[in-house]
């Protein structure tokens, strides 16, 4: 171990003395939104295992991609990028594929993506009814694939979603859905009393997953409820 440390140290010293490596720290940044091309609303996302934005910096070959994470509300921001031209493409998202584009990132650049979400959760309502949290909603799917599942997710954090929940009710659909059907999902509070404690506030969010390769869930905005 010691030997390795010495080597690394030596190499680090040797190279940090080089002029070439005295680059400025990253000063540029990129922020923006994912906007539903039809409704102009933000497209809700997952913070964990969610949509990512792949950046390939020009001038390096091969180049390691960088991935930006998108916030749950459908916005993103990274202020620690090097100013340069990049090839940018949202990947593994919850919307119809978007082509890569070249973009020059400078301090404070913004880039919005107009996308068509795989699924729109419409007429969503989440209420506390007796000992239950009851969600009702309709599903409008924008591609012909099956809807794999729908879910109601609960977490103390507002970034609640399928990969970040303390309690959930899910239903497998595995079918093409009818835009007029009202779906109802319930979370029973007493049987989740260890995680959903009376008197506390939790966030509840409706999600639906299309059955497509690498697709992520689509969501309605989270709702805060005191139980």
């Amino acid at each position: 171990m010691k030997k390795i440390h010495i080597y690394i140290l030596a190499v680090t010293l040797a190279f940090s003395a080089c002029k070439l490596d005295n680059l400025e720290k990253p000063a540029a940044g990129l922020s923006g939104k994912f906007i539903d091309a039809q409704t102009n609303e933000l497209v809700q996302q997952d913070i964990i295992r969610g949509t990512q934005i792949e950046l390939k910096e020009h001038g390096y070959d091969p180049v390691s991609s960088q991935f930006l994470v998108v916030k749950t509300d459908g916005t993103y921001e990274n202020s620690m990028l090097f100013a340069n031209t990049y090839t940018i493409q949202p990947v593994r998202g919850n919307f119809i594929a978007v082509e890569p584009q070249e973009f020059k990132i400078s301090p404070g650049s913004t880039l919005d993506f107009k996308v068509v979400p795989y699924i729109r959760i419409r007429e969503a309502s989440i209420t506390k009814t007796g000992n239950k949290i009851v969600a009702t909603f309709k599903i409008q799917q924008n591609i012909i694939s099956n809807v794999k599942k729908i879910g109601l997710y609960a977490h103390v954090d507002s970034r609640v979603g399928e990969p970040m929940r303390q309690a959930a009710t899910e239903r497998e659909l595995n079918a093409v859905t009818d835009a007029n059907q009202v779906y109802t999902l319930e979370i029973d509070l007493p049987s989740n009393s260890a995680v959903l404690k009376p008197g506390n506030q939790y966030y509840f969010r409706i999600g639906a997953l299309i059955d497509a390769s690498e697709a992520k869930l689509n969501y309605a905005p989270a709702v805060r409820i005191t139980i």
Partner: peptide
Amino acid sequence: NQTAGTVLAG
């Protein structure tokens, strides 16, 4: 459906 869904839309 699973194959063509995203392909057609994209």
